[in-house]
Write a protein that binds this DNA or RNA. Structure first.
Length: 878
RNA sequence: GCGGGCGUGGCGGAAUCGGUAGACGCACCGGACUUAAAAUCCGUUGGCCGCAAGGCCGUGGGGGUUCAAGUCCCCCCGCCCGCACCA
């Protein structure tokens, strides 16, 4: 658009109305939909960028955490598109799970109806945020077309032996009436219900994640763009430890040797000469067998089972045991028999469920030995202590550093370092054929059976004759029955009159369908891969996966550091081994965002009050309705229970999506918690209006051709604009959105200042239009609606959303003069502006000639002048 | 207990490599415009001393390395997070 100089000038500037997001935002959202800006290009010749945010559970309404998560992803998606990438930015729904069943029980709504209605609501809310999502790829995990592939892959896992049926002690959530995986038990309580978890023996389907323990650990090394914290948490969770598995010969009280030796696991085989007892888990098969004949042992077992696994329970729990009528022969001391106990601190699920106790060098063993008056023999001694002076008090000596300690009281090991002693024992035990080196993991296999309705049916049929038979793939999907009732506790699938009664696919006899459904974490373990070919007849279409995977940037909350992110990494591997994909790591880069937090409020009665009802006056806070005094409490994660929730819907209604997006990006770096404040939101709103006024002023000026010569203030403005462009580009690349926003504020200020004195000259108008255009493009990823509105106001064609990212002019980034701070003895005293090309001597002499410098030097002698080119000058004087 | 992170004005935070500490925003205060309000605009704001010029102190505390430390090293304090009887 070219206007004659002066046309419209004044008129527009005077009449610049306020920017109205309520009309502008829906308009541009429609324009984007029509232009399909967010749909990934099928052209696979282009560089791709797959940005994914953790998909939401369709609870019914979006919350501020979603706004933050999806805004972060959207900024990146829009930016990468402008940089010429073929961007995949999809959205779906993690739609199975308990809340839908709870709604069914509370309100009598069918889980499917409840879920799909919630999805519709939330989708509309997400659209109002102006997110550039490729909705053509949308799916919900409860769509039979999604879960049929999950069933198919499970059948492949079964064939590969990656899925097995195991009877195991499981975590039982008595409130949700279902099994939980280890990862889903937090501090002894169910992750969802918060109920104290009980232990139960149950047969259930298990995925062999432990087969990949080593590879899951090794793979962490390659994940350079994952937060160290998350990698460390996964590493600790996998919990690799190197040690030995070896066996004791056992004798009964009459000295008769038992047929089977007793294997134990240890990482401190070097301390074998300090062994003074052997301890078995209360759930060890030997203890179970003995308990059948001995009431006291049976009672001890019951006592252990009753013990909770919560933090307090473990901390308070005394080391306790019961002597068993057995002895273990020491492998290296001929005549020594060690007493055998069942002990409450030995876990059946780790190692062999049996240990040898060396009290001098393990705190638990020491506590136990003191209680039962067992010998405490030190076998590792600090180098600076004489062996005969080495005594153990209430604290075990656990230092095993080769440099600090030495072996004592250990026959052929005496004088060795701990690593040497370990090696020697390992060698001897291997020679004797009683043990071998072994690596143990803390990680357990993943129990995936859940006794629930609203989940993916496990595609198996139990036949009296044939056992567990996979449903033939041609019969997939095994669909959930729709006519279910929730009036009885327990699993509605199990109660259904007909659903489970089927014939065996193998022999045709009457059989029973598996009524358990999958843990919903399975659904979310491979959804990222489904997005590459969401309508394919196979789980993942190979060519699409080869092009799009892995996810280039994954964004979500830290709370999934272990659960979801570890399961997904396992699934990627299992899918390779079953021929469904070929990327070992699903997420190349991971970003964990902080929470959205808000001040809490209480009224005089101590009840929580929602922020909307709090009025701020000079004298303090008051209740909007009752007028009572309000006390502000700590700033905490938004939660319904504390009522400190801000509904994104209200914010969008009041200020528009751009303001919400801008504020949530501006105040804190994205990995940290951000406090939502009314004042901050208003600040963001004011900024949108300020931009709008600026743009109106510029629009009133004619766009000019670049003049041959440009100097003075116009040149300075161009410099600021191009420098801001370079800085913001780098900030976005590094996800430093808060800093990017600070730079954009500065550019806005520079444009406003320039406008005060700008003439109606070609150079000035050119610089203004250029700066405006750059600024619009810079904030377009963050405030996309306002950007389009300004773009069109300035008369540009098309959509900013489809414009390539601007390039900074290198010649404008370079400075010809530079201002150097001058320090004298490390303290800043003055500054000097010199030509960039100025030499060291030149700078030095002009620095020393300055009054402020002379004053600071006083009567001292200049020893040295340090000139760091382009940085600083430091005069050292004594 | 084990492992990890963080600590900068009234607040959120900025500060590639060690190189002007406090960018930018919020809040506050002062001013302009207005009959008034809203909106907007301009300005001040780390602390102490000083009329000013300027000086001294200052990134949780203490020590160290360096011409120079928020940044590197050692010790301590405080807060936060993860795991937790894992042999």
């Amino acid at each position: 658009m070219k206007l004659p100089a002066g046309a419209n000038k004044g008129k527009i500037a005077m009449s610049s109305e306020r920017y109205n997001p309520r009309t502008a935002e829906p308009k541009w959202q429609k324009a984007w939909d029509a232009a399909k800006i967010a749909e990934a290009d099928e052209d696979r010749g282009k560089r791709k960028f797959y940005v994914l945010e953790m998909f939401p559970y369709p609870s019914g309404r979006i919350h501020m955490g979603h706004v933050r998560n999806y805004t972060l992803g959207d900024v990146l998606a829009r930016y990468k598109r402008a940089r010429g990438f073929n961007v995949l930015h999809p959205m779906g729904w993690d739609a199975f799970g308990m809340p839908a069943e709870n709604a069914a029980m509370d309100k009598g709504v069918h889980p499917a109806k409840w879920t799909y209605e919630n999805i519709a609501n939330m989708k509309a809310q997400l659209k109002r945020l102006g997110l550039s999502l490729d909705w053509s790829r949308e799916f919900a995990t409860c769509d039979p077309d999604y879960y049929r592939h999950e069933q198919e892959m499970f059948i492949d896992f079964l064939e590969k032996g990656l899925a097995v049926r195991k009877t195991a002690q499981v975590n039982w959530d008595p409130v949700d009436q279902t099994v939980l995986a280890n990862e889903q038990v937090i501090d002894g309580r169910g992750w969802r219900s918060g109920a104290l978890v009980e232990k139960r023996e149950l047969a259930q389907w298990t995925l062999k994640i432990t087969d990949y323990a080593e590879d899951l650990l090794a793979g962490l090394e390659e994940l350079e763009d994952w937060p160290e914290k998350v990698k460390l948490m996964q590493k600790n969770w996998i919990g690799r430890s190197e040690g030995m598995r070896f066996s004791f010969r056992l004798e009964d009280e009459q000295g008769r040797e038992l047929p089977d030796p007793l294997p134990v696991f240890t990482t401190r085989h070097d301390t074998i000469f300090g062994a003074s007892f052997v301890a078995l888990s209360a759930d060890h098969p030997i203890v179970k067998a003995l308990a059948e004949k001995d009431g006291a042992i049976a009672a001890f077992r019951r006592e252990c089972a009753a013990l909770g696994t919560s933090e307090e329970a473990i901390e308070k729990a005394e080391k306790k045991g019961i002597k068993l009528p057995l002895y273990a022969r020491h492998p290296f001391k001929k005549d020594v028999k060690l007493p055998v106990y069942a002990a409450n601190f030995v876990l059946m699920g780790y190692g062999e469920g049996a240990i040898f106790g060396c009290p001098a060098h393990d705190q638990r063993d020491l506590d136990f030995a003191r209680k039962y008056d067992l010998p405490v023999v030190p076998v590792v001694c600090p180098k600076d202590t004489k062996p005969q002076d080495c005594e153990i008090g209430d604290e075990a000596l656990t230092d095993s550093d080769g440099a600090n300690v030495v072996m004592i009281n250990s026959d052929f090991l005496d004088g060795m370092s701990v690593p040497e002693a370990k090696e020697e024992i390992a060698r001897r035990m291997e020679d004797m054929g009683i043990g071998e080196r072994k690596v143990n993991y803390r990680l357990r296999d993943w129990g995936v059976s859940r006794q629930r309705y609203w989940g993916c049916p496990i595609p198996v049929i139990h036949c009296g004759a044939c056992g567990a038979v996979p449903v033939p793939k041609s019969d997939l999907p095994v669909k959930l029955p729709e006519d279910v009732s929730f009036d009885k506790p327990g699993n509605p699938l199990d109660h259904h009159p007909t659903w489970k009664h089927v014939s065996c696919p193998k022999c045709g006899k009457d059989a029973r369908r598996e009524t358990d459904t999958f843990d919903t974490f399975i659904d979310s373990s491979w959804y990222y891969a489904r997005f590459v070919s969401p309508h394919a007849g196979v789980p993942v279409e190979k060519e699409a996966a080869d092009y799009w995977l892995p996810v280039d940037q994954y964004i979500g909350g830290i709370e999934h550091a272990i659960l979801h992110l570890l399961y997904s990494r396992f699934y990627a591997r299992a899918m390779i081994d079953t021929g469904h994909a070929n990327r070992r790591e699903p997420f190349r880069a991971l970003f964990t965002q902080g929470m959205v937090i808000h001040e809490t409020y209480k009224d005089e009665a101590g009840k929580w009050v929602e922020p909307a009802l709090v009025v701020r006056k000079n004298e303090g806070l008051f209740h909007a309705e009752t007028g009572g005094k309000i006390t502000a409490g700590p700033v905490e994660k938004m939660s319904k229970s504390k009522k400190n929730v801000i509904d994104p819907e209200n914010i969008i209604e009041q200020y528009g999506a751009d303001t919400a997006r801008w504020f949530i990006l501006s105040d804190s770096p994205p990995e940290r918690d951000i406090e939502w404040t009314e004042a901050g939101a208003e600040g963001a709103w004011r900024f949108t209006q300020r931009i709008w006024r600026l743009m109106n002023q510029i629009a009133a000026r004619p766009e000019a051709e670049a003049p041959a010569e440009i100097s003075g203030a116009a040149l300075d403005l161009r410099r600021v604009a191009h420098r801001t462009l370079a800085a913001v580009t780098e900030n976005i690349e590094n996800l430093h959105f808060n800093s990017a926003i600070a730079r954009i504020h500065e550019l806005a200020r520079a444009i406003a200042d320039f406008l005060k004195t700008a003439k109606d000259a070609e150079a000035d108008n050119f610089a203004l239009h250029e700066a405006a255009q750059i600024m619009i493009q810079l904030f377009a990823p963050m405030m996309p609606h306002l950007a389009e509105e300004c773009w069109s106001l300035l008369g540009h064609e098309g959509l900013v959303a489809q414009r390539p990212w601007p390039e900074a002019d290198e010649s404008l980034l370079a400075e010809d003069t530079v201002t150097l701070p001058i320090q004298v003895n490390g303290k800043r005293r003055d500054e000097i502006t010199v030509a960039k090309s100025a030499g060291r001597e030149e700078i030095e002499s002009s620095v020393l000639a300055r009054d402020a410098v002379k004053r600071a030097i006083g009567d001292k002698t200049v020893r040295k002048v340090i000139v760091v080119p382009g940085r600083i000058v430091n005069v050292v004087a004594k």
